[in-house]
Amino acid sequence: MKQVLADEQAMAAFGAALAASVTEGGVIFLRGDLGMGKTTLSRGVLRGCGHTGSVKSPTYTLVEPYDTPSGPVFHFDLYRLSDPEELEYLGIRDYFTEQALCLIEWPDKGDGVLPSPDLEIQIELSGTGRSLLLTPVTQKGQAMVDNLSNTTTELAGDD
Rank of each mutant, 00 (worst) to 15 (best):
A16G: 06
L62T: 08
R43L: 06
S70P: 01
K140H: 12
I123A: 01
A16I: 04
L132E: 01
C102W: 08
K56A: 04
G32T: 01
G129T: 00
R130N: 04
M1H: 13
T151E: 14
V73S: 01
V22L: 13
E120A: 05
S126Y: 11
A10G: 08
L90E: 11
G157S: 04
D83F: 06
G141F: 10
K38S: 03
G48Q: 02
D146M: 11
P65Q: 11
R31K: 15
L18A: 04
D159P: 11
S57Y: 14
E85I: 03
G25W: 12
M1N: 06
Y89M: 14
N150W: 12
E85S: 06
Y66V: 05
S126G: 06
V145M: 04
P107E: 09
G37M: 03
Y95F: 13
Y89I: 12
I121T: 10
T68N: 01
G129E: 00
D159Q: 11
L34K: 05
G112K: 04
L81G: 01
E124Y: 02
L81H: 10
T135E: 15
V137W: 11
A12F: 06
F96S: 00
L78F: 05
K56R: 14
G26A: 00
G157A: 03
V45H: 02
V4C: 12
D159I: 11
C49Q: 12
D159M: 10
L90D: 08
N147D: 11
H75F: 09
K140V: 15
D159F: 13
N150C: 12
T23R: 15
D77R: 05
R130L: 01
T40L: 15
S54R: 15
T152I: 15
S54D: 14
H51K: 04
G44V: 10
L114Q: 02
V73E: 03
D159N: 11
D146F: 10
G129F: 01
T23D: 15
D111E: 15
Q139A: 14
Q3G: 09
D158I: 08
E88I: 10
T135F: 06
G37I: 06
G32A: 00
S82W: 12
E8I: 05
A10P: 05
L81I: 14
P136G: 07
G15D: 07
S149Q: 14
E105P: 07
T135D: 13
G91Y: 02
G127C: 02
Q3E: 12
W106A: 01
P72I: 12
